[in-house]
Simulated scan of single mutants.
Amino acid sequence: MKIGFIGAGNMGMALIKGILKSDFVEAEDLILYDPVREKVEGLEREFGTVTAKDNLELTEKSDVVIVAVKPNVYDEVLKEIREKVTEEKIIITIAPGITIDHVKKLLGRGKIVRTIPNTPALIGEGITAVTYSEEVKEEDKELVRKIFSTCGEIVEIEEKLIDVAMAVSSCSPAFVYMFIEALADGGVLLGLPRDVAYKLASKAVSGAGSMVFKTGFHPGQLKDMVTSPGGTTIEGIRVLEKSGMRSAVIEAVIAAYQKAKGLK
């Protein structure tokens, strides 16, 4: 089985490296193309992947084609590869706002899988939302699961919710980085060395996320476990609530979702 990657940006590279670290396929079964040839040629030298001369060659030689380009060039790329797409080829998209129906209209054939990964995939800690066209069979779905499980977790959802998932999981790392930075800035303001402040803040955030994931407890329950009557934590929470933290986060998710609906 041959897997082709059109595009080797952050998300494409995360998936490529995740697959290379696993024993899922051999390096020579990965066919790569990126306009910045240094990216893929470097992988070829280091790991033994195959560099295609163009998108057409890549599509023709691949059983699975992962289109990891920006939304504004999707139409151009899909039209370019259309003649090489067969009924049995699996086409995986990685972009907000690009619907399965839109891809079908441009390609005319193929099994379409729409995905939304996030950047923690770069360290194997990502989560990918996945939805499928009706042509995708169960064995095809299992293949998709294997590909994306090389760099994290997977959730399968209805397509109508995929852009919501994008706002919650794909945009949110940036929101969380802002929160970590703000926590660290507070520590620096009060005298902590910056490197220590970043370490304390980032580990607190990653640990808190793991607590929600691994314990299954409601976030509110975990919050209450940290919040003593009349203590320091509830005093900080009072300020966050007064400043509208919850509302700001909810509005950020809505704004990201609405932006995705306008992309193509």
Rank of each mutant, 00 (worst) to 15 (best):
I91E: 01
L43R: 07
E135L: 06
I92H: 03
C151K: 10
E76T: 13
A95Q: 01
E44R: 15
E138R: 10
L78F: 09
I127H: 06
I154V: 15
T93L: 10
T115S: 09
A95N: 05
R37M: 14
T119H: 11
A121E: 08
R45G: 10
Y132A: 02
N72G: 07
S149T: 15
I147T: 01
C151R: 10
D75E: 15
Y33H: 10
S149A: 14
L107I: 09
A52S: 12
G124H: 09
V85F: 05
I116G: 00
V103Y: 00
T59Q: 08
S149Q: 13
G124P: 09
T115C: 12
T131K: 05
R37I: 14
E134C: 03
E38G: 14
P120H: 14
L43M: 13
P71G: 08
V73P: 01
V36Y: 14
L107F: 12
K111T: 05
R82V: 03
A129W: 05
N118Y: 12
K146H: 00
T59E: 00
D140K: 01
T119W: 12
N55I: 08
E134S: 11
I92W: 06
K141S: 01
E41C: 12
I112M: 07
T119L: 15
K84Q: 10
V85N: 02
K84V: 07
A121W: 09
N72P: 02
Y132M: 05
T131I: 06
L107N: 03
E153H: 14
E88D: 15
P117S: 13
N55Q: 11
V103E: 01
E125Y: 10
V136C: 04
E88Y: 05
E83T: 12
E142L: 12
H102N: 13
I66T: 07
I91Q: 04
G108K: 07
K137S: 14
K137V: 01
V113I: 13
I90E: 03
C151M: 15
I90P: 00
R37G: 12
I90R: 00
E88R: 10
I123A: 14
K53F: 10
L43K: 04
Y33I: 01
V65H: 05
N72W: 15
D140I: 05
K70P: 03
K39T: 08
V64M: 03
I147C: 02
N72T: 13
T49E: 07
R37N: 11
K146V: 05
T59A: 08
D101I: 09
A52W: 00
R45D: 07
E138G: 06
K84F: 06
N55Y: 11
I123T: 15
V144R: 03
F148H: 07
L43Y: 01
E41T: 15
K89E: 04
I112Q: 04
C151Y: 08
D75S: 15
K53E: 14
K141L: 05
E138Y: 11
E80T: 10
V65S: 04
K141A: 03
L56Q: 09
G126T: 09
A129F: 05
G97M: 12
T99N: 01
L107T: 01
K105W: 04
I98R: 06
I127D: 05
T51C: 15
E44C: 12
V64Y: 04
L43N: 03
K137Y: 06
P71H: 12
L107G: 07
A52F: 07
G110T: 00
P120K: 14
